[in-house]
Amino acid sequence: MKVGFIGTGSMGSLLVGAFVRSGAIEASDIVVTNRTFQKAERLAAGHPGMVAVSSNREAIQQSDCLFLCIKPGEFKSVLKELQPYAREDQIIVSITSPILISHLEDQLPCRIAKVIPSITNDVLSGVSLCMFGSRMTVADCCMLEGLLSHISEPLLIDEQYTRVVSDLSSCGPAFIAFLAQGLIDAAVEITGIDPDEAVAITSAMLLGTGKLLTEGGMTPNTLIKRVSVPGGITQQGLQVLRKETDGMFQKLIRTTHEKYREDVEKVQVDLYGEEVNGP
């Protein structure tokens, strides 16, 4: 099976690299293209046997399964290029959350899926959020989940929950890293600890915490209770956190949802010329 990628930016190149390193796909079975062709060439050059092509037309013609790793504003022009060459037996996978499955099924005759990856897939970890269109067969779904299982834990979700689940799986690493960096910066500023040492300690702590929440079978609340003892230092610190972050995470989720709705509306106006109801 030939697998194509349109878009070799941050996430497109991450997926290509993860699939090859994990053994999910042979480099010789991958074709890549990018608006800036030199980026596709550089990616292919790092994986002997991989082919870089100079047009979206070539990418879809040479692919059985094609990943669209592009920004929402690029879909209209890219879909227009793909339409004359799209086949009913092809699988098209979008990794762009504001692009609805219905958008792609309206524009292409192919079997449509949406997958939301995470930066954690780069180390063959985390989850991949999977949504399948009406034309996908059981065999198609199993094939795609099989590929993704090499680099993540595939998780089937309802498309209406795309945003909130993406907040946790895809945006979450950046949110947690932001909080970790704040903790590091404060430690360095107040105590003078070496920044590199603070980063190393915090990173190891995050790794161990993740294992406790997965392999260790703990929930976040269980972990908090285990570390925090009445009258102890951790409890005092948690009191500060609870006070200072009161309402913050609710505001965060509302903000990401509002941006998502705006992006969906822009895509629908771009594709249809008017707003269309959707998840």
Rank of each mutant, 00 (worst) to 15 (best):
I253A: 12
P220L: 01
I6S: 10
M218Q: 13
Q235E: 15
R35E: 03
E74C: 12
N56C: 02
I112E: 07
P117M: 08
Q236N: 13
D122W: 10
E215M: 05
Y85S: 02
S22C: 11
T245W: 00
K39L: 00
E258V: 05
G23V: 01
S134Q: 14
D89I: 03
I70Q: 02
D270N: 03
Q83E: 14
G4L: 11
D246F: 10
G247Q: 09
C110D: 12
A86T: 13
L66S: 12
T96L: 09
I60Q: 04
A180G: 08
G273V: 05
V16E: 03
V164D: 10
V115E: 11
A52P: 08
I116D: 01
A177L: 12
E244A: 08
H150V: 12
N34C: 05
G210Y: 02
T36W: 00
Q239C: 06
D246S: 14
E105V: 11
S118Y: 11
V123P: 05
L271T: 00
Q61S: 11
I233P: 01
G7P: 06
D158F: 08
A139G: 02
S169R: 08
G231T: 02
S152P: 10
V264M: 04
L271I: 06
G232K: 00
L124T: 12
L104H: 05
L68E: 12
D29R: 06
A59P: 10
G273F: 03
G12T: 10
R111S: 06
A86L: 01
I193H: 00
E81Y: 01
F178V: 11
C142K: 15
H150N: 14
L124W: 09
Q61P: 02
G232F: 01
L156A: 14
Y161T: 11
H47D: 08
G172R: 06
L104M: 15
G46M: 03
A186M: 09
A45H: 13
T234M: 07
K114E: 12
F67E: 10
V78T: 07
E58F: 07
L147W: 15
G237D: 06
G182P: 12
T255A: 15
S102P: 11
G46P: 07
A44H: 09
R111Y: 11
S125E: 12
L100Y: 15
F67D: 09
V264E: 03
V78H: 01
L43F: 04
T219A: 07
I233L: 14
P230Y: 03
L168P: 00
K80T: 15
L213R: 05
L104R: 01
S170N: 11
T209F: 04
S170Y: 08
V240N: 07
G49C: 02
E41V: 15
R42P: 06
T8A: 05
E262W: 05
V32A: 03
L168M: 13
I193R: 04
K80R: 13
A113T: 04
V53Q: 05
